[in-house]
Write a protein that binds this DNA or RNA. Structure first.
Lengths: 154, 154
DNA sequence: GTTCAACCTCGACCATGCTGGAGGTCAAGC
DNA sequence: GCTTGACCTCCAGCATGGTCGAGGTTGAAC
């Protein structure tokens, strides 16, 4: 019957998670993880931080920003075990994001693959031709976008 | 029978591609696109640059770095129409990269989704528990990685 | 009670992927 | 031949996602 939660030091978290201590402080700064402090001002982490970190790192590997991750994790309670509905909310919002990214990747890959099939020497009818659709809402810059990819060479 | 290739100015490329001229110079600097110069030192682009740009932007949106893109595009010839085998090489290398990313996204999503199913109140048997595998080779930092996610709260 | 690794803060610095401005040149239209 | 917008180079700056080091404190072991 452990009443004391057995907190982890930053060094232990770094070692166990594989995340450098510098990054741990950085994540804390950005609100992705939390710690409590000892009387001497040292960080102590709940074990649950390890799972959060695994989450963060995995999400980053697939191209999500720390801000995305922070927003998602913000839906989970800091101080209690997440309920099923906590999970459902997080999961739903992530799923949409992940689905969108998977979809974009598929389209990119399939277009490329399609180009092998079509030979791509005459691109006028090639699937790649319409790839431009993708940038319609891409960041700042010139307004947009007469779809002007004519047949020719890449 | 057009003998003159009808080159585009940087402003035209910016407008048609939606990529700001500042970014175009940046990409050229990094070797992702090429231009020729007029007698007066102004850039002129082949129309094919539009397709390269569409490619670059789409790839970026799915999380590939400019370096990745540059390496991939480097396999295409600058000065002639790509042959089928040029395309096949590019396509193969990209496909592997994209497949890997799609896979990572699927696993992340499915694990999350799986957690709804399992309730995730007792995580000891949850798929998320093993998510740590993913970071085994993740960048610099502490060596690695006793797999220490115990049952508990996220 | 001293030692010494591990911890703290703060600020500088790095890479990537750009944007924006200064100061000057080019080129097409009148 | 002059105007004017589009172009040029170079360099500073910004956001993100960190790392590194200086200078000081903590805490567990001896």
């Amino acid at each position: 019957m452990s009443k004391l939660p057995e907190m982890l030091t930053i060094g232990q978290v770094a070692e166990r998670s594989g995340v450098p201590h510098t990054a741990l402080r950085f994540y804390e700064d950005r609100g992705l993880i939390a710690s409590v402090r000892t009387a001497g001002n040292q960080r102590r982490y709940q074990r649950s931080v390890l799972r959060r970190l695994a989450f963060i790192r995995t999400a980053q590997r697939v191209g999500l920003s720390l801000e995305d991750v922070r927003d998602a994790l913000a839906q989970l309670p800091d101080n209690r075990t997440p309920t099923k509905s906590d999970w459902e909310r997080l999961s739903r919002s992530w799923k949409a994001e992940l689905d969108a990214r998977i979809d974009a990747l598929y389209r990119l890959r399939d277009r490329l693959t399609g180009c092998i099939g079509c030979g791509c020497l005459s691109l006028r009818s090639c699937a790649l031709q319409n790839i431009d659709d993708e940038q319609a809402s891409h960041g700042p810059g010139a307004p947009q976008l007469k779809p002007v990819v004519e047949g020719g060479t890449l």
